[in-house]
């Protein structure tokens, strides 16, 4: 069976979903349509598991105890995976969500750290996700550490980074060495290109596989059920990618 052409966003959704299969509960932050769709894809093929909590959504969010509940839930170990981005991300997995330059009068100001400085410590599998893969974003050292990639041994930290997924590749996080390793390169991109577009140093294996394209069944599930479900929270995203409206 021939696989229909896969859009770049569909590859990212499928790639992230493979990191979520089999987990119990995934939380997704606001304004995160690709991680949200990945979580819904994992649920669709996992017979309702993992459970999903999309923050700020009316659907796909069962929390009833206000804004603090996500954080209490994470602290009790009830959330298995979460997503963080960053205006800057460096090779030690430090993330900057605050800005560039003097924080009192920055050259560039990002929205702010949100819950990153907490959830990065407490959620076991934090997937760093940033579509833009450029030396501007992936820097040798962040200007401001909203949340550190690793901590001293005496700091309580059951959680931390798991992988960094960009529009060009997947990096796996190596907890022991506090470094990324290039895990796969998305089709259409090259190892040499990544070297030029990445501002931090990382481990490069002798052979790096291509990121696996979603098969026809996965694409079908994504374009059908998942598209309708994600449209309820991200109608603009679902309309742009799949030309679908929200499922009833």
């Amino acid at each position: 069976m021939s696989v229909p052409t896969c859009q770049p966003e569909e590859l990212l959704i499928a790639t992230v979903a493979t990191m979520l299969d089999g987990l119990g509960h995934i939380a997704v932050g606001a304004a995160s349509p690709i991680p949200g769709a990945a979580a819904l894809l994992a649920r669709a093929r996992g017979n309702g598991r993992p459970a999903i909590s999309i923050l700020g959504a009316v659907d796909e969010n069962a929390f009833t105890d206000g804004g603090k509940e996500l954080f209490d839930c994470a602290a009790e170990g009830r959330i298995d995976a979460f997503f963080l981005g960053g205006g800057q991300i460096d090779g030690e997995a430090n993330i900057n969500l605050v800005g560039i330059g003097n924080p009192r009068q920055p050259k560039v100001r990002f929205p702010g750290s949100f819950g990153s400085a907490y959830l990065y410590f407490l959620v076991p599998r934090v997937i760093l996700f940033r579509e833009e893969h450029s030396p501007r974003v992936l820097v040798s050292r962040v200007d401001y550490i909203s949340a550190p990639g690793w901590s001293a041994p005496n700091v309580y930290r059951p959680g931390g980074p798991y992988a960094l997924v960009t529009g060009r590749c997947v990096f796996a996080w190596q907890k022991e060495t506090h470094r990324f390793r290039l895990a796969s390169v998305h089709p259409g991109h090259t190892v040499d290109e990544l070297r030029a577009e990445t501002g931090f140093d990382y481990d490069l294996p002798d052979t790096v596989p291509a990121t696996v394209l979603p098969d026809a069944a996965t694409l079908s599930l994504m374009r059908g059920r998942v598209a309708g479900e994600i449209a309820r929270t991200y109608p603009g995203f679902a309309a742009r990618l799949w030309n679908v409206a929200a499922a009833a």
């Binding site: 750290s113 400085a117 407490l122 401001y144 909203s146 550190p148 901590s151 700091v155």
Partner: peptide, 13 residues
């Protein structure tokens, strides 16, 4: 008291 945050530049400020 609150978990996390230690090592973040947030705490510096």
């Amino acid at each position: 008291p609150l978990r996390g945050i230690i090592g973040s530049d947030l705490a510096v400020h």
